[in-house]
């Protein structure tokens, strides 16, 4: 298609995409980094701080892009991370 798509779709405001909220249980983390590596939206990054086990737990970099796939939850060997549906206005 030589006509490249460039306009903002007319329905872009109406499209509802689930939004997630990520919670990290820092002291459970052993720093394997799976959640960071596998997050499809690159929501997470390694933090600077040390936890009780002496590793860097993940921290949320860009929460607005989380689409609640919950894969971080599934992939974590230590049950140290989970995501929940974000409360938001407008009933999304």
């Amino acid at each position: 298609m030589p006509l490249r798509l460039w306009r903002k779709p007319l329905d872009s405001e109406k499209i509802k995409i689930p939004e997630g909220e990520v919670h990290v249980l820092k002291d459970r983390c052993k720093g394997c980094g799976f959640c960071i590596e596998f997050c499809p939206k690159e929501v997470l990054e390694q933090s600077e701080e040390f936890n009780i086990k002496g590793v860097h737990p993940p921290q949320v970099k860009e929460e607005t892009v989380c689409i609640l796939c919950s894969f971080c939850e599934a992939v974590c060997p230590d049950f140290a991370i989970f995501s929940v549906k974000k409360d938001c206005k407008g009933g999304c």
């Binding site: 298609m1 006509l3 798509l5 460039w6 306009r7 779709p9 007319l10 329905d11 872009s12 499209i15 995409i17 689930p18 689409i67 609640l68 796939c69």
Partner: peptide, 15 residues
Amino acid sequence: CPVTTPNEFDIGLAT
């Protein structure tokens, strides 16, 4: 599905 893009069929006028 949580990801969207402009629809080719509608020449990008819909998602």
